[in-house]
Design a protein around this nucleic acid. Structure first.
Lengths: 345, 345
DNA sequence: CTGTTAGCGCGTTCAG
DNA sequence: CTGAACGCGCTAACAG
């Protein structure tokens, strides 16, 4: 096991001081050409690389940014990471990804670990458990410690930091409106428990669309899925009563794909009997039968924007940095789970 | 912006030396009870946390392990990460994830970055470009630098390190055999270019199954998909000739799902006319119509095993550490893209 | 019981 | 042109 080469070792090798070596390697004019060349050649040969740890300690910055996401086996989050990674690379930053696994405790642990000198800034999306507990002290502490923070997707109003969110409400509105335009009148909503902010927002968009079109909200058509139970069972209640929906908006891809399968098992045809729209960036949508119309979230753009804001803040010496909330537009991606209606004016 | 609290600051606060504070916080018996209590209370109050960077520099280890994967928007790799993360947490290690994006250059960069004192060990899966270039010097250098390495899934024979692979050949064999048992005789293979090791292995399993059953390999039924072109177009050649397959084995989920759609567009029914089996852990398989029978890869187990081996090596002081290659069993997950055949003995 | 010193690896004054 | 000294934050061996 060849030990890593350090300035010290090179210095000893040449019988010069460490600082001479340091300067020589930086091509400082203070050092004689001859010494420089010899030292540089030697260092090159042994693949000398300054130790990151030492550099970080000295410079008090790491050129690394931390990302905390609730889940890694999740297409949307990986898309966001792609966006972050891409820009980070261009800017010479490394990315450290941590997974809270939707747990409050792990989120706090991850944050403490990252805050501890490991990264120059953090990009985070709040775990479900944290949203449920409604306890965000760790975020405030982070900010108090002077570590820049950007929240994305699942954000918290009362935290004062940069934020990037998708236009959840707008996207849901678009989806519901599309169903209405296509002639649906009994539109169901399959959503998360209300404490999940994005679920809440998307529900609002749904409610807004229906209300504006003078359709009363029917709570029997709204299902808040508990992820710990069977999704199939929970959504099948939609088809058991007399008032079966003719349109369904689901706040994510899994719910949408599942409800299509369940609808079929009850003898309904998608999109002829029931039209379905999901919400996501996912891969499943393309491969269901029929392929699933969705509201596109643009996770990649989101990640990129989040990092952009973070670097902005890191670079800003401003004591009075102005925090922004950036909204990423969502739009409909029509596939085959909705009818192709011809509109005439 | 509250500056981080350090030993030095606490020392100044109490008018004692830094080492006294250090010892007090470690509850050293050398320090008087009274001083200890006061210092500990103070530190607690200000949330003192030793700076990781300084600790790492001093201890020459970081309690962090690096993971290099070719792609993050990929269900299998995220599964592997889940496995790594889980065990890492239990063992008090952090995980740093880097994405090579299937690029040789990024893989090398990631590796250099990680090797530079940032992590205690690395778990990696080789990028496609690297496999294509067949240039693995960076891996050997890593090992020469004394940094433990575990390769998983896409591994390289000539590198001497711990490895974890799925039983690709065996899984493919199972799949092809299942198709044969179900009565298929014209079995197509949809695979990657041959330089992708897992594609190569899976092809071997396919060939073995057919050969053992005295079926000649028909190269018209073997498609090596070029990811840069349209998958649909490439696989549709299967249905254009006279010799249309009655069974298809695809080396991943996307190819399998795509070929099902294309088959349908040509008027074939899955599984009645054509049976299909894919290879993966993915989410798409559950939501296609019909749901896709696959060879399960157990990515999570793979990640866990990889970290296990890595920690083994890190902890071992052994100069003569014996490297192992661990094979994760694969098995068939029968869904609805294959027929349910009753066998009698 | 407490403090001094040294060292992890590096870069940057400041003297010589 | 070169080197000694300092500091980043921490611990440990050694003095007192």
């Amino acid at each position: 096991m060849k030990q890593k080469i350090t300035l010290k070792k090179i210095a000893k090798e040449f019988g010069v001081s460490i600082s001479t070596v340091s300067k020589a390697l930086k091509d400082s004019p203070e050092i004689s050409l001859e010494v420089k060349e010899r030292i540089q050649a030697f260092a090159e040969y042994y693949h000398y690389k300054p130790n990151s740890l030492a550099l970080n300690l000295r410079n008090q910055k790491t050129k690394t940014i931390g990302v905390i996401i609730p889940e890694i086996v999740h297409h949307f989050f990986t898309k966001v990471i792609t966006g972050i990674e891409k820009l980070a690379n261009d800017k010479g930053y490394n990315v450290m990804i941590c997974v809270s696994n939707e747990s409050y405790e792990k989120e706090v642990l991850n944050m403490e670990m990252l805050a501890n000198g490991v990264v120059d800034g953090i990009i985070a999306s709040v775990s479900k458990e944290t949203e449920e507990k409604d306890d965000y002290r760790h975020f405030n502490e982070l900010i108090n410690n002077g570590i820049p923070l950007v929240m994305f997707d699942r954000v918290v109003d009362q935290i004062n930091c940069n934020k990037v969110i998708a236009d959840d409400k707008g996207g849901a509105f678009l989806a519901a409106e599309q169903l209405l335009k296509n002639g649906c009148s009994k539109i169901a909503l399959i959503t998360t428990p209300d404490y999940v902010t994005v679920g809440h927002e998307r529900k609002e968009g749904y409610v807004k669309a229906l209300t504006e079109n003078n359709i009363e909200i029917n709570n029997d058509l709204i299902i808040e899925v508990d992820d710990k139970l069977s999704i199939e069972e929970q959504v099948s209640s939609l088809f058991k009563g007399d008032f079966v929906p003719d349109g369904i908006f689901a706040v994510n891809e899994i719910y949408a794909a599942t409800v299509m399968t369940v609808a079929r098992s009850f003898g309904y045809h998608v999109p002829d009997d029931i039209e379905v729209i999901g919400f996501t960036d996912g891969v499943i949508s393309e491969f269901t039968t029929p392929s699933l119309s969705t509201v596109a979230q643009h996770g990649r753009t989101m990640g990129q924007k989040a990092l952009e804001l973070l670097l902005d803040e890191i670079d800003s010496q401003d004591v009075q940095y102005q925090h922004k909330t950036h909204i990423i537009k969502t739009d409909l991606k029509i596939r085959n789970s909705t009818k192709k209606v011809q509109f005439h004016n």
